[in-house]
Design a protein around this nucleic acid. Structure first.
Lengths: 85, 85
DNA sequence: GTAGTCTACATACTATAGTCTACAAAATGG
DNA sequence: CCATTTTGTAGACTATAGTATGTAGACTAC
């Protein structure tokens, strides 16, 4: 069981984007998000809110739950570690 | 087609929490989130990040994608409206 | 009535989501 | 190779995610 701090969507997002043959610019336009933010998401610099997940999934012509399913598969066997100070 | 600004998880979250017979305190403990934040999520004062969605779903003994599916059903026929200034 | 449980709400804080501009570096296609 | 396109990155900004404490109201059980 691998401990992680956050769910990171970078690899899933990039894979799906490329499978649609979209540039980041194209995906940004389709999702009404900022192009540089797409870049940051793909590099796991930032994580999206639920609304952003919906926007991205819609832009990728898939259901948000399908997008999340992809994440589940990537993070199977991982546990999110929450630290208490 | 109804325009919305954000995906709000309040009604889904509360329904699922009650179906598990958890108090907000219980759900907070199981998800390692703050109790008052759970309250705010249920009242749609705040929206969660993807990591928080995973934490909540796990605490509710369901897959994150199932949780998101519930949201999809609630928001079927809605479109997220993004305003450009 | 009283104590305990549950939740809403206010307030304040830290960390970060998301936007935007500018520029540099990398990739691509002819 | 060169021009164009694409992506990474820095920096600054506004809005908000998430935490935490305290108070108050509602409800239930004894």
């Amino acid at each position: 069981m691998i401990e992680i701090e956050n769910i990171t969507i970078g690899s899933v997002l990039k894979r799906l984007r490329l499978s649609m043959k979209f540039s980041q610019e194209e995906l940004a336009a389709r999702s009404s998000l900022d192009r540089t933010y797409i870049s940051m998401l793909e590099r796991n610099i930032k994580q999206p809110t639920i609304t952003t997940v919906f926007l991205l999934a819609n832009a990728l012509n898939m259901k948000p739950s399908e997008f999340v399913q992809q994440l589940e598969e990537d993070f199977d066997g991982h546990i999110i570690k929450r630290t208490k100070v």
